[in-house]
Design a protein around this nucleic acid. Sequence first.
DNA 1: TATGAATGAGTCTTCATTCAT
DNA 2: AATGAATGAAGACTCATTCAT
Lengths: 187, 187, 187, 187
Amino acid sequence: MSERSESKKKLIFDCARKLFSERGYRDVTMSDVVESAGISRGGLYLYYTGTEDLFRDVIKEEMESHVYPDAGSGSPAEVLAVFLRNCKKRILKKSGSLERALYEYSFAGSGREEYLKKEFDEGVSFLTGVIEMGMETGEFTSSDPGGDALNIMYILEGMRIKAQTSGIRSADVDSEIMHMISRLASS
Amino acid sequence: MSERSESKKKLIFDCARKLFSERGYRDVTMSDVVESAGISRGGLYLYYTGTEDLFRDVIKEEMESHVYPDAGSGSPAEVLAVFLRNCKKRILKKSGSLERALYEYSFAGSGREEYLKKEFDEGVSFLTGVIEMGMETGEFTSSDPGGDALNIMYILEGMRIKAQTSGIRSADVDSEIMHMISRLASS
Amino acid sequence: MSERSESKKKLIFDCARKLFSERGYRDVTMSDVVESAGISRGGLYLYYTGTEDLFRDVIKEEMESHVYPDAGSGSPAEVLAVFLRNCKKRILKKSGSLERALYEYSFAGSGREEYLKKEFDEGVSFLTGVIEMGMETGEFTSSDPGGDALNIMYILEGMRIKAQTSGIRSADVDSEIMHMISRLASS
Amino acid sequence: MSERSESKKKLIFDCARKLFSERGYRDVTMSDVVESAGISRGGLYLYYTGTEDLFRDVIKEEMESHVYPDAGSGSPAEVLAVFLRNCKKRILKKSGSLERALYEYSFAGSGREEYLKKEFDEGVSFLTGVIEMGMETGEFTSSDPGGDALNIMYILEGMRIKAQTSGIRSADVDSEIMHMISRLASS
DNA sequence: TATGAATGAGTCTTCATTCAT
DNA sequence: AATGAATGAAGACTCATTCAT
């Protein structure tokens, strides 16, 4: 099948993304998308086979937009700061966030946790690399770079889920980030 | 409600709890409960108005069963160790756990996060108290007991959600717990 | 699941039978049955899982109503005559016949030919028995009872399908039956 | 229609024939034809108004390909033998056969039985002629050529439908053909 | 209290057919 | 002639909830 109408697909994609960010994953139906995009039932199925298909497309783009700061863009401490600033932004983001939908999707059945797992693993790898580089430059001190990276990721995950459930204050995120950094900073 | 009714309600409750722990919150229907409990559809509605009503009853009991170790049952370090051991158990618990259902419920719509929020807040309070007591006894050192309590809770939450999505190893939990304790321990 | 309402099931059964006899198998939908029986969509699914389920129930009863004349109810020639008279009746039956639906069902996919096959095989067995008995009593002559039984069944099947497609005249059926009988009759 | 168009129509025709022979009549959709022929949806409708239109075109050609042996090509007995050999071939033909589709089409609604009826009637006419010629040459004996022709056609139809539903063995067809011939052969 | 048959709204999915380009 | 995106009607199936008994 060729391209069909790219603009139409984009319209559907955008409407679906909006719906997922507003209602999460489980409460979005194909009918909702049809109504929201102002197209016909059959028309939607021309582009997507179902809400999961839609969601995976939406989340794929989302994941691609989450880039890690370039290791060469500054000192390890600077790179780490950029990374944590991005994390903070995501954690606090209110409208347009797919976090809730992503968690819901991951809980909607086995075999759907890949996205969360991938994000976590990539975060650990990235952080481990940054910490090791910082040790070389003397900016960071760590007896266990991998362990410290894991610890940071758990804290970030903890704040992330807290933000989605009971909410979190910006200052609290800042405070945690401070601690992370000061712990790594050489004495 | 007569005694007879109470036992029936208990039967429904137990079956529902089992279903929620096996399938999470969203994938349990009233029909499932009816079938599992071997009662009539109408009978179920006599005790519960829907799956949400059922879940709130189940989770209420669950929350009550999560007791914090008695502050006077040992030294602050010992009390903390017991608390963290319990947390570890919950994080790693496979069968019978309501964690997934609880997260799903919290995501199922606004106004449903109270349980997770309550647990978190109580955890922070408890830990703050323990740390402060430990400072008095000289076992712990902390420049910000509330902040350290929060930090520990974020790590625990992070591991908890990770366990439910991509899984976590027992050793990883141990490692994090070690770090928490050593950080608090006076030098 | 217990009996539910037997009368309701009977109502559905009767409506479905009528529909199948009027429209065949493929052109009957669950909606048709719902409308015809004057019940709700959900109500129908309480009794039958789909049109195939319905059809199998209808055809099962139909098959059970096709009894072979008792071998002891008369001389072999008389028994044969009764059998052929019944066949004729079915072949010529206009309203209420499930023949077309049965053929359609058999063509609707593999694994669905069992009913037609069963009928044919039973017919061959029955006829073989009758012919052999007739040979013992001296009423019939046959050098190959099984082969003659098969031949009769093919003729009956041929008339049956012809009746359903382009139609057949009563006199033509009589004529064929005459031939069958005279061929078997001892000279 | 230009030459170019004719070839396209032929392409569609061939693909449709293949689909009908593989899946019967009811399970072939316009989408199937579009996909199989590798043409556009709109393009297909330029040549055919629907699956029925397609099928009628396919079956028309099929009917034309069923030629009766030339009465002058041999003795009546030889001509009959050729005819029956052809019938046997069709009855046993596995791949590429339109039999199932033809039956399905005939059952798909009234006014669609013409093809089966025409075939049957032509068969009777042909056989009657052959038998009468055989009587003139002294090869055949028959007190009712038309009746004997009808009888043969019913047997052939019976075997044909049996082959499509529960299957038939080559030897069984041979056996029936033997009987037909021996019955006609003068003593 | 208890039953379970009945309801009907809501979702998914497929397909013949049209129409602007 | 030809394309293929778009439509919308039709059909299947499920589930929370009610109600007469």
